[in-house]
Simulated scan of single mutants.
Amino acid sequence: MTATMEPAVSGRILAPGVIIGAVSGLFAGVIMLVGGAPASWAVTAGTLLALPLAAAGAGCSFLRWRGLLGGGHFAPLALYWVLAFPLVRLVQDVGTRLVLSDTLALPQHLWAFLAYQALISVGFAIGFVWVQERLVRGGARR
């Protein structure tokens, strides 16, 4: 297949990752609401998590489809999310502060924040792979 894809093919390939990422971010916003966070904070944080997670999920689906993150091999997928998830969370954290308090600031202990998110990312990678391979009929395969 050439570098350019037909819209129907690209939609079929990218949709699982986009949907998983978006639903994960929106679910986090709902959990924040249930936990008592102010609605503006929950909506902002949920949206700022859903959008970059959807983009990272689309990237993961595309790389799986291209064979760079092969099915049945968890280590490359875990490595992808160890890199992508902390960046997504950093975008969410900085963006939420910027939107809600007009302050552009990084987390106080940036390296600790990123390391913790990298640890959490492995659990997200397991869930992402499980959903993509079990519920989306084999995920993004050629």
Rank of each mutant, 00 (worst) to 15 (best):
S101D: 14
T47K: 06
A42Y: 03
I126P: 03
F124C: 02
L49G: 05
W65A: 12
S61C: 14
G70D: 10
M32R: 07
A28K: 06
G25S: 07
H109W: 10
Y80D: 02
F85H: 03
A8C: 13
A28T: 07
L53R: 00
V30F: 08
W130E: 09
G11K: 08
V30Y: 03
V122M: 01
L79M: 12
I13E: 05
V131A: 10
A37Y: 02
Q132K: 11
V94C: 00
A8T: 07
A55D: 03
A55M: 10
V99M: 09
V122A: 00
V91S: 08
L14T: 04
W65V: 07
E6T: 15
A8V: 13
Q92Y: 09
A54V: 04
G17D: 03
L83F: 07
A75M: 10
L63H: 06
S61Q: 00
V99D: 02
R141Y: 11
S10E: 14
T44M: 13
I19G: 11
D93Q: 07
M1H: 13
T2E: 12
G123K: 01
H73N: 15
G59R: 02
F27H: 11
L104Y: 11
A28S: 06
L114T: 03
V122Y: 08
V34W: 09
G67T: 02
V99I: 09
T2S: 15
I31C: 13
